[in-house]
Amino acid sequence: MVKKPFILLFLYFLVLFQISFLPHFRFFWSFSGNNFFNLVFLVLLLINLLEKKEENFGILFAFFAGFLLDIFSESFIGFHVLLFVLISLFIKFFLKQYVQIGEQKIF
């Protein structure tokens, strides 16, 4: 419980890092001049994939991550939130339905 607020604070810095630090490295991973490397999205996927099935912190993380990206991007507030929350829900649904980690069986 104590950890979660810190993760959200970390998320804030991560978003700032994404929008202020990483754009300079575009030459490193860009394709046709588009910056497709999204660190926030990568962390979102990791949190949702690695957390326990019964926990819902991944969705909360998706909500705040989307919100912060909306704030610092040109899109309307809610665009990234909706996108990230839907992705989180899909991962949760997918893991619940098809992955049984306890039995070491995937699909």
């Binding site: 700032l16 202020s20 630090f21 990483l22 300079h24 490295f25 704030i71 610092f72």
Partner: peptide, 22 residues
């Protein structure tokens, strides 16, 4: 509001990014 509170950190990150990327 968010830009106001983030500006000092963003400024430093932007400078750092420029240096490292260069």
């Amino acid at each position: 509001f968010f830009y106001l509170i983030s500006a000092p950190i963003q400024k430093q990150l932007w400078k750092g990014g420029q240096g490292v990327a260069g």
